[in-house]
Simulated assay, not measured.
Amino acid sequence: MTNKSSLEFHETFKPEIPYISKILKLASEKYSGTKYEISDISGIPTGEQKGKVEPHIKYASFMGLINFSCDKGIYALSLTPLGEEVFVQDPYLHEDLTLWICHYCMTRKNFGAPQWSYLIQEAHPGIGESLSQDRLFNLANNWCGIAVSSLNKKVFSVVRGSYTDGIFSRLGLIEWGSLISFIEQTEKMDLTYVYSFALLDSWDRLYPGKREITDFDLKDGIGFGKIFGFNEDECNYVIDSLSDEGLLTVNRQLYPATIIRTANVESVIPLLYSRLL
């Protein structure tokens, strides 16, 4: 069962682009300091018990942008290879492409922010389908053990806010009222290398050492279609596009189809923004 404290890392604050950007800048400088010093230098508010500095450090980490450690209240920040590329290309997170990267990292299986990952990877009923909020809370109660009456405020309010009027709202991926609807998406050519990064990154994490995976691994193991809002046909189109780019090869003569990687994460990161007009 998921550790309850890990679900409340957000302290009820949803992720905000300006604060993620400021943490990114400090990480680019390999900054070290207390949450109060980080607040003073960045303008991100904090307090004795609650504040936005620590949640946004953790958000930036879940988004794959920074590494951090904390020793006796001193946070040491640094950029990941992904964060280095984002900081060079889009330090203020203005591009939807950057937000798709952050959304992917937040929802990746086993390694994302717990409640974001749970919503997309486990509770998600299928593209174009809906899930009632009551159904989500009942499912999540079995997952994390938090009372249904507390799940909204303690676990999912920040997830809802991030997709309805927050950092990920521009992506048009989720509509959240009494029903939670997962909106079908089409392939976006400027995201070609985001798709390949997501596939290869999850491949490394979930299938380490394997050069070949199946179509089932892609869709059910990695949750590739759910992450990006693709139905099965669109998911196949995207994989074929990545094959056309020479990033992988697909054998559809077998069942299930097999996918062989011909690229790695390190080679794809410098290309993430190369298709932006």
Results as ranks from 00 to 15, higher is better:
154 K>N: 11
146 I>N: 01
175 E>T: 11
131 L>P: 08
143 W>F: 13
169 S>T: 08
161 G>L: 02
156 F>Y: 08
181 S>K: 07
149 S>Q: 14
148 V>C: 06
150 S>A: 06
179 L>M: 11
148 V>Q: 11
125 P>G: 02
146 I>A: 02
117 S>R: 05
155 V>I: 14
166 G>W: 03
171 L>Q: 08
173 L>W: 11
145 G>T: 00
170 R>L: 14
135 R>V: 00
160 R>H: 02
120 I>Y: 04
160 R>Y: 02
128 G>M: 04
112 G>M: 13
119 L>N: 04
175 E>M: 10
167 I>C: 04
131 L>T: 08
165 D>Y: 13
170 R>W: 04
149 S>Y: 13
166 G>P: 04
162 S>D: 04
112 G>C: 12
126 G>W: 07
118 Y>D: 05
135 R>S: 05
174 I>R: 00
179 L>N: 11
157 S>M: 07
112 G>E: 12
122 E>K: 10
128 G>T: 13
180 I>S: 03
109 K>F: 15
109 K>V: 06
180 I>C: 05
166 G>S: 06
169 S>N: 12
132 S>L: 06
124 H>Y: 13
171 L>N: 12
133 Q>C: 05
125 P>E: 01
139 L>G: 10
111 F>T: 09
141 N>K: 09
115 Q>C: 12
168 F>L: 11
111 F>M: 10
174 I>E: 01
140 A>R: 00
155 V>L: 15
146 I>T: 09
155 V>C: 15
179 L>S: 13
126 G>R: 06
